[in-house]
Amino acid sequence: MRKERGWQEIPIGGLILEAGNAEEYETGSWRTYRPVKDGEKCIHCLRCWIYCPDSAVLTEDGNQVGFDLEHCKGCGICAAECPPKVRAIEMVLESNFEEKE
């Protein structure tokens, strides 16, 4: 967690003066469904990476290596865009993970 700053330390008017700083703000807690990938089925076509509106699909050397769950909102676009013959991503109710974590 970032330290919350006082009213005299922040830019006026709610302005955001740096580009791309949404990365610093955790928004993954809004999620109802979590994308879960079956590594056996994934062909690393990266369609999920292209379509993800929150840039929350993680890649390494051209491979899909998972999801940034601090920013994934659980919209399910990745699962919908995964090619029909692959179907490697399943959206799972977040509450299923609560007890385990």
Partner: peptide
């Protein structure tokens, strides 16, 4: 050169501070 965002969401953690300003 100096990008700025106007009118973003301002949740309970900062809205009050902006009103104080």
């Amino acid at each position: 050169e100096n990008p700025v965002t106007y009118g973003p969401v301002d949740l309970p953690d900062y809205y009050f501070e902006h009103k104080r300003q």
